[in-house]
Design a protein around this nucleic acid. Structure first.
Length: 572
RNA sequence: CGGGGCAUAGCGCAGGUGGCUAGCGCGCCUGGUUCGGGACCAGGAGGUCCCCAGUUCAAAUCUGGGUGCCCCGACCA
C-alpha cells in the first residue's frame, strides 16, 4: 500500500470524547470514527488489524475442529421465549418489529438459535461432538457504552457452541476450547490470564474468563501469586485478613444512642470502634421477597454471590422507603434483631465475631456487644463478601493481590440449561432420548483490537504486536519528489511486496519529521528510512518501534534481515 | 436509572454584560521556497453558533422545552 492512496486520517489533537489511552490512540491513529454512542466505523487501518485478529481466531477454531457457520442477526422472539430470556435479558436486548408486527431480537449471543439448529440437525450420539461457531456482529443495548471499542452497543464477537452426548465429553470439548483460546491470545501477542468467573446472564455450571492485563481494565482480578489461583472479583473467594475475636467473653448487649450516625465509618468512629467490629445489615428484595445480608463493616457484600445462592433472577437493594417499612427506622439503623418476615444470611467472616455493633432498627440507635444466637438468629453462613487485595488465598493460605483486566474471552460449561428448555435431544447408544450437553465460548474480536493497544503504547503512539500490526514494515521515503529517492524507495517497496511482506510506502509530500511521527503513532513495528543517506551511502536506517532500536543495513541485506525479524516476532 | 458536565468550521478551543462582516490554532485548497524529527512565505475555501419555541428593533449571547455526547455512580445501612 502507498500511504498517499490509503485513508489514514491521523490527528494531532484527540477528540475530547476519548478518555482511555486505547480509545484516544484509535481515534488519533485513524483506526476508528464514532457514528453514535457505542457505534463505530472501522477505517481501513483499524479494519486491517481486526482482520488479523479474526484470521488467527478462525485458524485456531478450525484447527480445534469447530465448524464455522453463519446465523442471522435478526432472531425471532419465539426462540427467546422458549428459554425465558425474552423477559430475562431485559433492556439490553435490542428488539425490533417487522411490518407484520412480529417481534425479533438483534442477537446479543446465539444460544437459542444454535440450539434450535442442533435439535433439528443432530439426531444421534454419532453426530457428536459438534462445535459450531461464527464471527458476527452482536447487539447489546449497554447501560453505558464507553471506552470506544471496549464496550459497544454493536460489536463483533466470535461465538462457539459445543454439543456433546454426556458430561465427560462436554468437559473434553470445554478443554479443547480452553486450549484453543490460550493459543489464540498468545498468537495475538497479548499478556493474558484465564480466571474463574461468574456465569452471569448466560448461565451454566462453571466458566472462565480470559483477561488481558491492563491498568484501564474494567474487571478486577483477584490473584494468588503463590499458587496461581485467579478469579474475577465477582466470583473470587478469599479470607478476610481480620479473623475474628471469638475467644472473647460474651458481654451484655446494650442499646446505645448514635444520633445522626448513618455510615459504618460514622457509627464506629462515634462509638470509638473500628469498622471490623461492626456487622452491617444490607436489605434486598430477591424476586419480590425481602432478605437481609450481614457482612463485616469493612467488607463489601458481593451481590453476585448472594444472587447465585438464592438462585434469584433479580436482586435489588431496598429503596429508602422499603427499608423504613421493613425496619421501622430510617436508612442507617438497620439490624438483624427482631427483623421480622425475612431470612437472614451472613458472610462467613462474620461467624467468628463477638460483641459487635449492629443497627437497632430504631432511629439514632445501635446495639453494642451483640452476639449470634443469643440476640438474633442467622439462617445460613456462607461466602458473601467481595474478595480483594490482602485477603488470604482459600487454596494455599498466602496473600492475594488484585490486578486489572479486560475481558476478551469467556468460556462457559452450560450443561443442560438450553437443551432442556428447548428440547434439544438425541438418541443415545442405549436407545434412550437424552438432552445434549452444551458449552459456549465467546471472544470479543473488536475488543481485542482495543485491548492490544491498551497493552502496547507509549507517549508517541501505538506499539502493535507483530501479529496484529496493520503493516509489518513502513518504508519512509524522505522527499519522495527526489527522483533518486523515489526510484530507490520504489524498488525496496516492490521487493518487499513480492517477498510477501506486509508493507506500506510513505510516499506523501510531507516533511521527514511529520512522516516519522505518523509512523510511530500508527505503530508499524519496523521502519525503513530511504533518504539521502540511502541514496548516497547505501545506508538504510532501520527503526524498531517497540524497543526504539536503530541500526543500519545495506541494500542487499535489507529483505532477508527484515523478513527474519518479522518471522521471529510473529508468535506461532 | 440517579448525579454532573459539555454542545460555536474536519479536530482542539475562544467569544457570551444582547449590536455591525462570529474569531484563533491545527487541518484543508492554490502558488512558491524547503526536505533526516510534526517546515516557511503569500493567497484562499470552509459556519442551520445542536434543535424548537419565546423575549427583543436586534439572539451564538437572555428564558423555556427538547435532543445528542461525555464523565461519575448505581456498595446505602
Amino acid at each position: 500500500m502507498r500511504w498517499s492512496k490509503a485513508l489514514i486520517p491521523t490527528l494531532k489533537e484527540v477528540p475530547a470524547e476519548a478518555e482511555i489511552v486505547s480509545h484516544k490512540l484509535m481515534l488519533k491513529a485513524g483506526l476508528i470514527r464514532k457514528v453514535a454512542s457505542g457505534l463505530y466505523n472501522f477505517l481501513p487501518l483499524g479494519f486491517k488489524v481486526y482482520h488479523k485478529v479474526e484470521k488467527i481466531i478462525r485458524e485456531e477454531m478450525d484447527k480445534a475442529g469447530a465448524l464455522e457457520i453463519l446465523m442471522p442477526i435478526m432472531t425471532p422472539a419465539e426462540l427467546w421465549m422458549e428459554t425465558g430470556r425474552w423477559n430475562l435479558y431485559g433492556k439490553e436486548l435490542v428488539r425490533v418489529k417487522d411490518r407484520a408486527n412480529r417481534e425479533y431480537a438483534l442477537g446479543p449471543t446465539h444460544e437459542e438459535v444454535v440450539t434450535d439448529l442442533a435439535r433439528t440437525e443432530i439426531k444421534s450420539y454419532r453426530d457428536m461432538p459438534k462445535n459450531f461457531y461464527q464471527i458476527r456482529n452482536k447487539f447489546r443495548d449497554e447501560i453505558r457504552p464507553r471506552f470506544g471499542v471496549m464496550r459497544c452497543r454493536e460489536f463483533i464477537m466470535k461465538d462457539a457452541y459445543s454439543f456433546d452426548r454426556n458430561e465427560e465429553r462436554a468437559e473434553e470439548s470445554y478443554k479443547i476450547m480452553f486450549e484453543a483460546y490460550k493459543r489464540i491470545f498468545t498468537r495475538c501477542g497479548l499478556d493474558f490470564r484465564p480466571v474463574e468467573a461468574d456465569t452471569g446472564n448466560i448461565g451454566g455450571s462453571f466458566s472462565h474468563e480470559f483477561m488481558v492485563l491492563a491498568n484501564n481494565g474494567e474487571e478486577v482480578i483477584v490473584n494468588c501469586p503463590a499458587c496461581g489461583y485467579a478469579a474475577n472479583r465477582e466470583k473470587a473467594e478469599g479470607v478476610s485478613a481480620f479473623c475474628g475475636n471469638d475467644k472473647e467473653e460474651s458481654k451484655t448487649p446494650e442499646k446505645v444512642s448514635t444520633p445522626g450516625q448513618h455510615t459504618v465509618e460514622q457509627v464506629t468512629a462515634f462509638l470509638k470502634k473500628t469498622p471490623s467490629e461492626l456487622v452491617k445489615t444490607l436489605l434486598y428484595i430477591a424476586d419480590g421477597k425481602p432478605v437481609a445480608a450481614l457482612v463485616k463493616g469493612d467488607d463489601e457484600l458481593n451481590e453476585h454471590k448472594l444472587k447465585n445462592f438464592l438462585k434469584a433472577t433479580e436482586l435489588i437493594m431496598m429503596t429508602a422507603e422499603q427499608v423504613e417499612a421493613a425496619t421501622k427506622a430510617p436508612v442507617g439503623f438497620a439490624g438483624p434483631v427482631n427483623l421480622a418476615g425475612m431470612k437472614i444470611f451472613a458472610d462467613n467472616a462474620v461467624m467468628k465475631m463477638k460483641n459487635f455493633v449492629i443497627g437497632a432498627n430504631e432511629k439514632d440507635m445501635h446495639y453494642i456487644n451483640a452476639n449470634f444466637e443469643r440476640d438474633f438468629k442467622v439462617n445460613k453462613f456462607l461466602d458473601l463478601r467481595t474478595a480483594g487485595e490482602g485477603d488470604t488465598c482459600v487454596k494455599c493460605g498466602k496473600v492475594l493481590t488484585a490486578l486489572r483486566g479486560i475481558e476478551v474471552g469467556h468460556t462457559f460449561k452450560l450443561g443442560l440449561k438450553y437443551s432442556k428448555a428447548m428440547k434439544a435431544e438425541f438418541l443415545d447408544e442405549d436407545g434412550k432420548r437424552k438432552p445434549m450437553v452444551m458449552g459456549c465460548y465467546g471472544i470479543g474480536v473488536t475488543r481485542i483490537v482495543g485491548a492490544a493497544i491498551e497493552q502496547g503504547n507509549d507517549e508517541t503512539g501505538i506499539i502493535w504486536p507483530m501479529a496484529l500490526a496493520p503493516y509489518q514494515v513502513i518504508i519512509t521515503a524522505l522527499n519522495y519528489k527526489d527522483d533518486k529517492i523515489k526510484l530507490l524507495a520504489d524498488s525496496v517497496y516492490e521487493e518487499f511486496k513480492a517477498a510477501g511482506l506486509e508493507v506500506i510506502l510513505d510516499d506523501r509530500d510531507e516533511s521527514a519529521g511529520f512522516k516519522f511521527k505518523d509512523a510511530e503513532l500508527v505503530g508499524i513495528p519496523l521502519r525503513v528510512t530511504v533518504g539521502n543517506k540511502a541514496v548516497n551511502d547505501g545506508a538504510f536506517e532501520i527503526n524498531v518501534r517497540k524497543t526504539k532500536e536503530e541500526f543500519i543495513l545495506k541494500r542487499e541485506e535489507l529483505l532477508s534481515k527484515i523478513k527474519g525479524f518479522v518471522e521471529k516476532e510473529t508468535a506461532k
